[in-house]
Every structure is written in C-alpha cells, then in structure tokens.
Design a protein around this nucleic acid. Structure first.
Lengths: 222, 222
DNA sequence: GCAAGTTTTTGTACATGTAAGGAAAGTAGC
DNA sequence: GCTACTTTCCTTACATGTACAAAAACTTGC
C-alpha cells in the first residue's frame, strides 16, 4: 500500500496557488488598504503569479468578493444568546446579521446576492424562519417573512452605504439638497414641512425600529 | 432693443451638444439595445462627438444613469387614483413606485441612491409621508416610516434583479443549490424542511404582502 | 521513452471609464 | 486689430477586468 506522501493521483499540471491562498491574500489587501486597492493584478503580484492564473481558482472578481464575505462572516458572525421568546428571537437574529454586515461596508456589491448564503449565516436564517413558525406562521409564510426581512436589511445597508460613498466622492450640493430647496409647499406640504430636518432624520439609525415594525406586521393576525 | 436671435450673452466656446441631447441619445440606445450597450464611446459617436466631451454635460456615467432614471420616472410614473383611506394610500403609493421601478430593471446601480429623488417621484413620497401622518404618526416618525418602506422596496428590487442577472450569467449550479443540498437536518431543521421548496418560494412575488406587513407594523400602537 | 490527455499558468489583446492637458471657439475690454 | 479670459471640446494615456490561445507541467497507457 504505497501512499507515503500522497502519491499525487491528480491529473494535469499541479497548481502553484490555491483558492484559499487567493482569498487569504485578498483579505490581507482589503484589511490593510481597503477594497479599492484590491485589483486582480495587485492580487496576482502579491501572490507571485499572474492575473489570469487567478481565474482558475475564482470565477471572476465578484465571486472573489463573495468568498471574502463568506470568510468574513465565518470569522465574525458568532452565535449570540438568543431570547426565548420567538418574536424577539427573530429580531435579534436579524439584527445580529445586520450589525455584522453594516460593519463591513465594502461588500455592497455582494450583498445583493439573492440570499445570505454564507454557511455561517444559515444558522441565523434558521432562527428567523423557526421563530416565525413558532409564532404561528406556516413554513411557507415564514420563508416569505424571512425574505421580507432580508429585503429590508439588505436595502438598508445598500442605501446607507452608497449614500455615504456618494457624499465623500463629491462636495457639490446634492441633488437631494437642490430638490428640497425648491420644494413647492402648496403642492408637497408634508415634504416642505420636514424639508429642513430631512437630512438629520434620514441619517438616524432606525434599522431596529423598522425591523420591529416589519416583524410585528408579519406576525399580526390578518 | 436688439435681441432678434438671442444675441449670445454667454461666455466661452458655444456648446455643440447639450445635456439633454446626451440623455435623449442615451435613452435611445438603452431602449433599443439594452443598458449593456450604453458606453461612453458608443454614446459619443452616436451623438457625433468624443467621449470626453460628454463629461462636460454629465459628471460621470453614474450620473448619466441617474438622469436616465429620472427621465424614465417622469415619463412613466403617472399619478394614480389613490384610495381615501390613508393606510391604503401609503400602500398604493409605494406599490406604484415599486411597479414602475421593477419594470425597468437596468437601474439597479442607480436605485441605491439614498432616496428616490426624481422630481416626479416626490409626489409619491409626499403621499406616503402624509398618509402615515394621517394615521397618527408624528412627522418625524412618518419620515422614518417612509425610509423603512424605501429600504424594503429598494432591497426587494436590487436583490431580485441581481439574482436574475446571476442566473442568466451562468448555468452551473448555484452556490445556494449546493448549500441547500448539503443541509444538515439535525442542525438546521426548518431550512431542511423547506429546502426543496426554497427556490419556488423565494421566486414568488410577495412584495405586496411584505409591504402591507411593514405598513401595519409601522402604524400599530406601540 | 513517447504520444495523448488534462489541468494550470502565462502572454497578449481588448473594451471600458475617465484623468490630464492643451486646443478651439467664442466674448469683453482695449 | 489684439490680448485676456471663459467655456467647450479633443487627444492621449492609464488602470482595470477579463477573453483567448498557447505554453508548461503533470499523469496515464503504451
């Protein structure tokens, strides 16, 4: 039985770099210098290879970012103590995911994946679906409820992050500011009424309030 | 009083193209061949100019897309008959916006603007905020409520569109499919239970249900 | 050892958005 | 007319993601 040092049964040219090495190096670059500095060329030289070689371990840059998110989630998304009350369990599970994602704003492109499918996040999804069922929803409605929560959560982060990004890009008055400055109070009275507080109001973090409202609404008898 | 043909009081070299022409031509390209075919070079040649000339009428490509969205909204977002009941008014206003945006899926990048600020959409925002106030919310809470609705709406579209985009890009089994195939029923029983229905379930259009739940939750006495 | 087959790596090439600097085309003051 | 100034436009150049084809480095069957 000869297999002293794994006698290489694999076919073809042996790889010099691995998918893991790609992801790890990418993570190092992102952590150190931000996601903007992560280019395929940079990554390749850092890893001692060529850009196109990466494409044998990663389908494209977007998939690399997905892997980075997955990696990030695995490392930072720890399971918290969840409350016993199922409704509150749903809220806390969703809020935990939200908190982790919000702290890592470079993944906006990835965030729009149709689901949060990092393996480490599945436990949270389970908690949400299960909590909704425990509150009386059918499994089908519970899945729909989870989706609604995900839409709301992903939307909040995407909107907030891109808004912040735009702000730093540019100092000129925002489109929004111009629009609000010219509001016709006779046509749009409510907006005119809150116009000068719009920016501070929308800057407030009301994710939890909205989440609670959504969960309450999902669980209310119809 | 000589001003027979508008005696050119403007300084500098007279423009040969206008922002409007840029937007109009861009719209024609997008309508005819899809947003992927809209490149700055293509647009420039179509308009009989050079790529960099466009940048004097449009800050960058993203702003061009924002303008396209604005234009699109102005043309297609007609004010519907809104129900008298304020809660229902909120729902219908939001649903109308959602419907218009969902029909025009190429604007995902733009959609993530921090607010729906096309002038033609403001009336709907007004209706939503006003409806929430009419249901008893303070103006501040009404604005937060509108934001929650916007997060939910934008999130739904972004998630759905990018999911669809990914699907056409690629025929290989989705990450999601792989993950669900390997679910451990003892650890994630609920997900295992719905695993085989996950795709059809999440493909269903439940925007309205979620919206109603959210609005109900926002308006429920706390 | 050699031919065939397989997988990884590399080199070259292209499309794209856009930065930078200067040329062009006009007005205003003289 | 000429100079200064302003605005718009054009040329060139670069960074980036990635398609494509060929080369390289293996295994397997002979």
């Amino acid at each position: 039985m000869p297999q002293p040092s794994a006698p290489r049964k694999t076919l073809g040219r042996p790889p010099r770099i691995s998918r893991e090495e790609v992801v790890t190096t990418a993570r190092r670059i992102v952590d150190a210098e931000g996601v903007d500095r992560l280019t395929m060329r940079r990554l390749a030289t850092e890893i001692g290879s060529t850009p196109m070689a990466l494409y044998h371990h990663v389908r494209n840059k977007e998939e690399l970012l997905v892997l980075l998110l997955d990696d990030y989630a695995t490392r930072t998304l720890h399971r918290p103590e969840l409350p016993a009350q199922p409704r509150e369990r749903v809220v806390v599970a969703a809020a935990t995911i939200h908190e982790a994602l919000a702290a890592c704003p470079w993944i906006v492109e990835v965030l729009t994946a149709d689901d949060l499918m990092a393996t480490s996040a599945l436990w949270f999804v389970e908690q949400i679906v299960d909590g909704l069922v425990a509150c009386g929803l059918s499994p089908e409605r519970a899945v729909h409820g989870y989706r609604a929560i995900w839409y709301y959560t992903a939307g909040e982060i995407v909107v907030r992050v891109t808004a912040a990004r735009r702000r730093t890009d540019d100092d000129r008055p925002t489109y929004r500011e111009r629009v609000f400055a010219e509001l016709d109070p006779s046509e749009l009275p409510r907006l005119a009424q809150v116009a000068d507080q719009w920016s501070p109001l929308t800057a407030e973090d009301t994710y939890l309030d909205g989440l609670r409202a959504l969960v309450d609404g999902l669980l209310a008898p119809r």
